[in-house]
């Protein structure tokens, strides 16, 4: 579900597993902004797990198209 061309909400465009500096796997998300620009952010395993849960996703591809607010809410609501 790619963003509509006129949709200004930043969304997850791509989700990839990447090796972290400390020897654990991390989740690299590419965020596409409304103006066409994009940026990457990295989540640790625990945050990635919560994000998948909140989005009802069982596979990484299902994160694609999710709006940034959802990501933020997941992280803000987490107790840790």
């Amino acid at each position: 579900m790619p963003a509509e061309p006129h949709d200004a909400t930043p969304r997850i465009e791509r989700a990839l597993v990447a090796p972290g500096h400390d020897g654990s796997a991390e989740l690299l998300l590419r965020i596409r902004y409304g103006d066409g620009s994009s940026d990457s952010v990295t989540l640790d395993a625990a945050a990635a797990e919560r994000l998948l849960d909140q989005c009802g996703a069982t596979a990484l591809e299902q994160l694609v198209g999710q709006p940034w607010r959802r990501l933020l809410n997941v992280l803000e609501q987490s107790g840790d």
Binding site: V41, D44, A47, L72, L75, E76
Partner: peptide
């Protein structure tokens, strides 16, 4: 905040 998601992806969040 939408331009600075990295500050929400770590402790202390946001």
């Amino acid at each position: 905040q939408s331009w600075n998601l990295h500050l929400f992806l770590r402790q202390p969040r946001g």
